[in-house]
Computed example of a mutant assay.
Amino acid sequence: MDSVLLLLGFVCMIVGVFGSFMPVLPGLSSCWVGLLLLYLTKAVENNYWILGITLLITVIITVLDYVIPAKGTKKFGGSSYGVWGTNIGLIVGILSPIPFGVIIGPFVGAFIGELIYDSKNHRRALKAATGSLLGFLASSFINFLFCIIFVGIFISIVWQNRSVLF
């Protein structure tokens, strides 16, 4: 059973790393499940501190995945219409079957929101939409960074327990 849990944990880690920059797949949460599966093996002693801290990081970064693009819009001069457009565009992008919908949705949403706010100022709308895109890219980078850290923790724990696991 330990081998199955180890293999499933490793698959979750791989899916998590790919999911950190492919929004269709779960990113950091998948990596956390991989750590949990590793700790469910009989070979690895439970460490609730690592699981708790990594869960807290996962929850915080998952929330930030939705907040950062909106903050990027605001930082680049967007109004509350642009922020709402970003959030609505993100939801539509997640649910739509178009490729890169999660990237395109917030950008288009912020752009449309800003045009609703001020239909004559296309430059401002484009600037706010660019802020949304940069916020999304920053969020993806943070997600990827922590996925790599979680993979490092996973590999370290497997290495420390290699004699019992293999």
Rank of each mutant, 00 (worst) to 15 (best):
I60C: 04
G89H: 04
L134R: 06
M22Q: 14
L56T: 14
A110T: 07
P69L: 11
T62D: 03
S132A: 09
I104L: 10
L38S: 02
S96Q: 08
T86N: 15
Q160G: 03
W49I: 09
G34Y: 01
K120S: 11
G131E: 05
L137Q: 02
V67M: 07
V158S: 07
I104Q: 12
F111L: 10
S3Y: 12
L6T: 05
D2Q: 14
L37Y: 06
V102I: 14
K74M: 14
L8M: 07
N46T: 15
G85H: 01
G34S: 06
S140V: 10
I104P: 03
I142S: 00
G27K: 02
S139C: 06
L25H: 12
P69M: 03
G89T: 13
V108A: 08
F100G: 15
I57K: 01
L7T: 11
I57G: 01
G9S: 13
N47Q: 12
G77L: 04
L165R: 04
V44P: 01
A128D: 06
P69A: 05
I155P: 03
D118R: 14
L25A: 10
G109T: 11
P97S: 15
F150G: 00
C147W: 02
R124H: 12
A129M: 14
T73F: 12
A70D: 06
A43W: 11
L165W: 04
D65A: 09
A110G: 07
V11A: 08
C12Y: 00
L36F: 14
T58F: 00
R123G: 14
I14S: 03
S3D: 13
M13E: 05
V151W: 00
A125W: 07
V15N: 02
V15K: 03
P26G: 12
L95R: 09
A125V: 11
W49T: 14
F166Q: 10
G93Y: 00
P26F: 13
S20M: 09
K42L: 11
G52W: 06
S20R: 05
V158R: 10
T62A: 15
G93F: 00
F10P: 01
I155A: 12
L51H: 02
G135Y: 01
F21T: 05
